[in-house]
């Protein structure tokens, strides 16, 4: 009997993984691979007017890499990446650093009312991003914002949504939204740090600060890397905040971020080929960024 069982057993082994993977593969193909394939296909064509005035409808032309070259050649699209780079440079250190600081503070032996603060910091994340952007828009508008009115009363007139301030205004809104969420992730990771390790640190004479920086932080490195990765990938897809604040700020052009450029290409210029090509370029950047951050993160972990 012992020798007879392997055969059906092996067969079951080949069927089982397929069965278990099928739901994932099916959804993955239908919702990710197929749309990417379709975008790739669309990015090779361009709609053109069939006559000089265009009243004879449109014809579709195969242009190969033409749409990709057009996207890369567009100053608006390139400017979008510069905006995003500046935004990331402001937003990621402040938000991830801030979340880390809050988590370490909450985790320190000195903290009181931990549950309350955990909830309080997380609460902004419960507000939908679009709504938050609208409210921030009001808070940034002189004459409507109590904060700006107060500053103005003290003689500090600050054009938050002006040419220099817009990036900071957006980073501020996003930080408000995401700092609590990431703090919760860090805090959960800190809970998993073995208590005996911390006790050992105390026995060795390390103070609260030293323990936080030299013991706790290295032990939650993987959470920090993961959070930074998600934040960076999210940031290059920036759309909500600038699109909403655009109606309040002259400094934000309709193609301010790459996703806004794509949106405009598709829905006001009906240039779906260009939009598809630009989307794929953005996706490639996202993938490259993930690769770099994970690599750097691994090196840090091994250090």
């Amino acid at each position: 009997m012992a020798t007879a069982t392997p055969r059906p057993g092996r067969r079951r082994h080949t069927a089982a993984p397929v069965l278990f993977l099928a739901p994932f593969l099916l959804l993955f193909s239908a919702t990710l691979l197929a749309p990417i394939g379709y975008a790739l296909w669309m990015s090779l064509f361009r709609e053109q007017a069939a006559s000089g005035l265009g009243f004879g409808g449109t014809k579709t032309l195969f242009v190969g890499a033409g749409n990709y070259l057009r996207a890369l050649d567009d100053p608006g699209f390139r400017r979008g990446f510069a905006h995003i780079a500046l935004y990331c440079a402001v937003y990621i250190p402040v938000m991830v650093g801030g979340a880390l600081a809050l988590a370490l503070l909450l985790d320190s032996a000195l903290a009181r009312a931990k549950r309350f603060f955990q909830l309080a910091y997380f609460l902004p994340h419960a507000v939908p991003g679009l709504i938050a952007a609208i409210i921030w828009g009001f808070l940034y508008t002189p004459g409507l914002s109590p904060v700006l009115d107060l500053l103005s009363a003290f003689g500090a007139d600050w054009d938050v949504l002006g040419a220099d301030g817009a990036v900071f205004a957006m980073a501020n809104a996003a930080t408000w939204q995401w700092i609590g969420y990431n703090m919760v992730i860090f805090y959960a990771a800190l809970q998993a740090v073995p208590r005996e390790t911390l006790e050992a640190a105390v026995v060795d004479g390390a103070g609260q600060l030293r323990t936080a920086v030299s013991v706790k932080l290295p032990m939650i490195r993987s959470s920090v890397v993961l959070t930074t990765l998600f934040t960076a990938v999210g940031a290059i897809q920036l759309f909500n905040e600038p699109e909403v604040l655009r109606s309040r700020s002259a400094a934000i052009s309709p193609d301010w971020s790459p996703v806004m450029f794509i949106y405009q290409a598709a829905f006001t210029r009906h240039d779906y080929g260009l939009a598809a090509a630009a989307s794929l370029l953005l996706a490639v950047l996202g993938a490259a960024l993930s690769f770099v951050i994970t690599r750097l993160g691994n090196r840090w972990k091994e250090a």
Partner: peptide, 20 residues
């Protein structure tokens, strides 16, 4: 014209910058 929607967006953006 067929291009007014897209032109209008960039014009609005430029006019907004010039408003002050």
């Amino acid at each position: 014209s067929p291009v007014h929607n897209s032109t209008s967006l960039s014009l609005q953006s430029g006019l907004g910058t010039a408003q002050k």
